[in-house]
Write a protein that binds this DNA or RNA. Structure first.
Length: 549
DNA sequence: AGAGTACGCGCC
DNA sequence: AGGGCGCGTACTCT
């Protein structure tokens, strides 16, 4: 496929480089030029999708493919299977230092920064050469394509926004908290609970938001409290506890997703967070703005499809255990993963007595639990599923030795030195601290291989899905067709015209099957989805999650 | 006063 | 002594 490299030149000019053709355009003419070559266009190569793609979308131009050099560089720099010297060259240290651009920051295009005008064609050539020379070139190519497709999807989701009904959200707030208070004050129901807590603790001036004050007050009435976490408080027996827990719960809603959140993040009936692909070291996305990746269940009723439209919500049941089965080639676990409920599959195979045992055992293996219920289950399951449990165990041991591990497609874990930055002014850590640090890094690398490969599966999923949604049709720009509006690790939300809902549900499942085959080729692992066609995000129950709570 | 840290909690 | 994030508040340091 043709690659067309775009670079910004000083003076609102753009350089366009492809085999056999080099030209210059005015920034203002770029959208028309790109639109002319889409659809079925080339792979657009640029420094950062978050800089180039938003204005194109604004101009009504949706792209099929890109290569995001910033993400590619970051990834290849840490990929164990890449000869690092092949990435060195003109401007390469600038690429090393390139951070994510903030699309809303206008200063970005005013300040003269050499990183503004990096040569995309040069860096692209280096990345291609580095991948081609790698013994894992096929996997790395897939990973880079998926990462870049994810970057396009991320910009598209910010552009479209999650449909958000302010009236429904506010109604919900008033019901739980009382009327909106003046700035700086608590709403009535929160204030009433604070009063109850003060009375029960005989502490008239107490601010329940102050941990030290609260801890002192609890101890004054004879409670043996060591912290103020809800989990710890629940174990205490005192009349103050119930109103205190209620206060903390509502207080969190008020400060994190209350009226000020609406004012700040919802515009024109859309919640538009920005997403940062690979924002987490494991390759998972992170987000900026409004806590998009932790929209509480409490406020999800406000995410409502437009009239005549619907939300198709889909999540994968037990993504990471399935990924572990696939990447380890553990036939027994893959067999348990055939069907809708992997944990039940383990019960049916006689590996464990009950579903809950399967769950704590697997989660314990992936997170590195050593004690209690979970630790005990891990031992028994290791005999039953040696390949799968051996894979995470090996990753943990490698981490404890200070070695880097990699995901299935070749993303490398950060070096142990980077994972634990040490202040040179502090005294060197003693052997105890170092040993603890190594074990902590081992737990991290243990989880990294599974969480990171899970993120790769999810990238392949949404990459394929966005193509399918575009092909489903409709006319005109992205938001007049079925389109992604939310993505959260193992879950997607598609905003679609009602008439296309069933087709979308079908495509979401097909894309999941494609992702599984892309990553795990010869190992047959199912990736069953819970799919719900709903008006409101809140209606998409998660049967698994509820049953296991 | 402002920047940075710790905690606690939300999501997966 | 179970992994990854973001965010708001109180609190501490400079």
């Amino acid at each position: 496929m043709t690659r067309v490299a775009l670079s910004r030149l000083p003076g609102d000019r753009v350089s366009v480089v492809e085999p056999g053709d080099v030209r210059e355009l005015a920034v203002a003419d770029l959208a028309a030029y790109v639109a002319d070559r889409e659809p079925d266009g080339p792979r657009w190569v640029w420094d950062d999708s978050a800089r180039w793609y938003p204005p194109l979308l604004e101009a009504g131009v949706r792209l099929g493919r890109c290569h995001d050099l910033r993400l590619g560089h970051h990834l290849l720099r840490r990929a164990p299977a890449v000869d690092q010297s092949l990435l060195d060259g003109e401007e390469s240290t600038l690429w090393d230092r390139l951070g994510p651009s903030v699309p809303s920051d206008p200063a970005l295009f005013v300040v003269e920064d050499p990183a503004e005008h990096l040569r995309a064609d040069l860096e692209d050539a280096r990345q291609l050469a580095a991948v081609e020379a790698s013994p894992e070139s096929t996997r790395l190519e897939l990973l880079l394509a998926a990462e870049s497709a994810g970057a396009l999807a991320a910009v598209e989701m910010t552009h479209a926004g999650l449909p958000w009904r302010v009236d429904v959200h506010e109604e919900l707030l008033v019901e739980r908290l009382g009327a909106r208070p003046p700035r700086g004050a608590r709403p009535a129901k929160l204030e009433a609970l604070a009063l109850q807590v003060r009375e029960a603790l005989d502490a008239p001036g107490l601010n329940p938001d102050s941990r030290p004050e609260l801890l002192a007050a609890l101890r004054r009435v004879g409670l043996d409290a060591t912290d103020t976490r809800a989990r710890s408080l629940r174990a205490l027996d005192h009349p103050a506890i119930e109103p205190l827990l209620a206060y903390k719960h509502l207080s969190h809603l008020f400060s994190n997703n209350g009226w000020e959140w609406i004012d700040q993040w919802v515009r024109g009936g859309r919640f538009r967070p920005s997403y940062q692909p690979a924002g987490s070291t494991t390759g998972r996305w992170s987000s900026n703005g409004g806590g998009a990746l932790s929209i509480p269940v409490q406020v999800r009723p406000a995410a409502i499809a437009d009239d005549g439209w619907t939300l198709v919500v889909a999540d994968v049941a037990q993504l990471e255990p399935r990924v572990l089965a696939g990447m380890s080639g553990d036939r027994a676990l893959a067999s348990a993963a055939r069907g809708a409920d992997l944990y039940q599959g383990m019960v049916d195979a006689g590996a464990v007595a009950q579903r809950a045992d399967a769950k704590v055992g697997l989660l314990g293996a992936m997170y590195g639990a050593t004690t209690g219920e979970s630790g005990r289950m891990v031992a028994g399951l290791t005999r039953r599923y040696p390949a799968a449990f051996g894979l995470v165990e090996d990753a943990a041991r490698a981490g404890e030795r200070g070695q880097v591990v990699r995901t299935l497609l070749g993303r490398g874990s950060p070096d142990i030195g980077d994972a634990f930055d040490h202040d040179p002014d502090d005294p060197p850590p003693d052997t105890d601290v170092l040993a603890r640090r190594r074990r902590a890094y081992g737990r991290f690398t243990r989880n990294f291989v599974v969480q990171g490969t899970g993120a790769e599966w999810a990238l392949c999923w949404i990459a394929d899905l966005r193509h399918r949604l575009w092909r489903l049709g409709g006319d005109g720009p992205l938001t007049s067709r079925p389109h992604l509006v939310f993505f959260l690790h193992d879950e997607v939300v598609v905003h679609a015209p009602v008439a296309l809902a069933a087709a979308v549900a079908e495509e979401v499942g097909e894309a999941a099957a494609v992702a599984g085959r892309l990553l795990f080729r010869d190992v047959a692992v199912d990736f069953p989805l819970n799919v719900a066609v709903v008006q409101s995000y809140a209606e998409a129950g998660k049967p698994g999650a509820v049953a296991e709570a």
